[in-house]
């Protein structure tokens, strides 16, 4: 489907499936492109989403294990104490619950508004409150095997945060630059510094939805940033909606 075809014609036939998350990526793009300029269809989407939300309430109730509440409250108590031992050690871990690592601790400090990167903390709090929030791992490359990062964004927003740890602390006049790649072509984005413990966070803003890109990467660059990468890639990860 040509997305331009949809700018001037309404997308009524796609709206219900869009609200259910049942469209193909090119159809999602077409709808979102149209919604940018069509208040009428935005209202229809809001109504369709409200109907889809109603399904969430209707699932028949099944009680979880009686000890789930205790396990949750222990985990919350650990978070409140700022403890690194915030994992639920009585259960297998999954990608959605990985918090006991240096990046996660740095994330918590950002969320608490600590340090110089409180702007990143505010956006992080917003993103984590977004039901569509996506958190993706961005591993260190062979150039920086001890480094790792988390990409925090949302399919419907053109901004997000990259939170990194295990980097070499930035020397005077040097920083790390975030790049978004599409088809192998890097587009320069924000610059951040790694502190003495190797942590840093960059707030990125884009001119199009983040999942239009396929990869996010980080390279060391001069403090003012570069128009094209000059340093080796130290962090790189695929951008996927799921």
């Amino acid at each position: 489907m040509d997305r331009m075809d949809r700018r001037d014609s309404h997308v009524d036939d796609l709206i219900d499936a869009y609200a259910l998350g049942a469209l193909e990526p090119d159809e999602v793009d077409a709808v979102e492109h149209h919604l940018e300029t069509c208040p009428r269809c935005r209202v229809l989407v809001a109504r369709a989403r409200a109907l889809a939300d109603a399904f969430l309430l209707a699932v028949p109730r099944i009680a979880p294990s009686p000890d789930l509440r205790d396990r949750l409250m222990r985990r919350i108590a650990a978070e409140a104490a700022g403890s690194a031992a915030s994992m639920d050690t009585s259960r297998p871990t999954s990608a959605t619950t990985t918090t006991a690592n240096p990046v996660a601790r740095f994330l918590r400090s950002l969320l608490g508004g600590e340090g110089e990167t409180h702007d990143a903390g505010g956006l992080l709090r917003d993103l984590l409150a977004d039901p569509e929030c996506v958190i993706l791992p961005v591993p260190g490359t062979d150039e920086a095997p001890g480094a790792s990062a988390r990409f925090v964004g949302s399919p419907h927003r053109r901004e997000g945060v990259l939170v990194a740890g295990g980097l070499r602390p930035s020397e005077a006049g040097r920083a790390y630059q975030v790049w978004f790649l599409h088809g192998g072509q890097p587009q320069p984005n924000t610059v951040f510094r790694a502190d003495h413990s190797g942590h840093g966070a960059g707030v990125f803003r884009l001119d199009r939805p983040v999942f239009d890109f396929d990869t996010v990467a980080v390279t060391p660059e001069p403090e003012g940033g570069s128009p094209a990468p000059t340093g080796p890639i130290v962090l790189a990860g695929a951008l996927r909606r799921e």
Binding site: L68, R71, L72
Partner: peptide, 9 residues
Amino acid sequence: EELTQEVFV
């Protein structure tokens, strides 16, 4: 149950 914990965290 893990996911439920994650929602409340």
